[in-house]
Write a protein that binds this DNA or RNA. Structure first.
Lengths: 180, 180
DNA sequence: TTGACACTATATCAGTTCGATATATATCGG
DNA sequence: CCGATATATATCGAACTGATATAGTGTCAA
């Protein structure tokens, strides 16, 4: 699967036309955000390239009260390229966590730093859960959206539960050591 | 948190000396693998740089039956730099999944491609679970290792359960449509 | 015995992506 | 009127991946 920013843009635009800015925001806030991210520095060049290849069309749109924008739309060739790119066995998921790195090397940090990290992590996870719930309400829930929402919710809920237990354990231990 | 390959190497070497090759293998097979990855192309330059800065020491070791290797060990300054790097609030977790991208855009793929993708994903998840169980047995389980193992196991188990249900649902639907 | 393959080991490099920054326009609150 | 925030596009250095090169050693079947 050729999973790069190009394919991501094609995927996003398969649901409707949008500008580079709107793609970035849409990826951050919508269903894509659970498992993908992309920066302006990769989106804008990708859109220019895809347009040059005839997989997208551009249209300059003047706006009142906002800067003008370039609205991109997917072409028939673009849809074919998208279908081709995602009809391959997917690569393995990639997960990067500074938090777990910190937890594994906990002997190098103080208990209060550790507790702060856990609380931050719990907060991040709960925000993600809230965003999924929001997507469920706002977007029309076709089968694909329901799939990724259910999957994301299952994973995040399990993470929160595990972390809450770990947190209780840590507080208990710290209190016990302070009592000595 | 300055979480880059440099910090990763310092973290790995905090548990004992190793060569660049051993670091790569250790990251792939051990506890680090659940939440981090790094390539030779980033590890080797990082080790050279860290050594030049006095955070590591090198020692050439001749081997019989294998090519010679450069064994790196962390210095006192290296431990300090590591402690400094991980005593900061961690950045948010990053999760990339081609699989979920495919599932979100399921209308562009055929049911058999979808089923193959789900089976591959289930297989990947189960392999990860097996690796965690293996780490639990082989490595001496200090608190940090138990933390990341429990966390990883909770997340992966939830993923597998969710996916198994989704798979059953899909098979049921496909059979129903074929019967029409 | 030789050729294919796999493992150990280090190194480099093109291509991709991130994160920061620059630039511009417009709205809104103080 | 100033500063903050939002919309919008673009660029660029730094970091990282994935592929490739190089080289020594072991194994195993044809």
């Amino acid at each position: 699967m050729t999973m790069n920013v190009r394919t991501l843009c094609l995927g996003f635009l398969s649901t409707g036309e949008a500008s580079g800015y709107e793609i970035k925001k849409g990826i951050e806030d919508g269903m894509f955000s659970h498992f993908i991210d992309a920066s302006f520095g990769s989106i804008y060049p990708a859109l220019t390239q895809l347009t040059a290849e005839g997989l997208l069309t551009v249209r300059a749109e003047e706006q009142t009260g906002k800067p003008d924008k370039k609205v991109y739309a997917i072409t028939e060739n673009g849809r074919k390229a998208l279908a081709r790119a995602i009809s391959v066995l997917p690569a393995k998921d990639k997960f990067k966590s500074e938090f777990l790195f910190q937890m594994l090397l906990h002997q190098f940090i103080t208990p209060d730093v550790m507790l702060a990290a856990i609380d931050k992590q719990l907060n991040d996870l709960r925000q993600d859960l809230a965003r999924i719930a929001e997507c469920r309400c706002s977007e029309q829930p076709h089968a694909g959206a329901r799939f990724v929402a259910d999957y994301g919710e299952a994973v995040l809920t399990a993470s929160v539960r595990c972390l809450e237990e770990k947190r209780r354990e840590l507080v208990r231990q710290t209190a016990a050591q302070a009592a000595e």
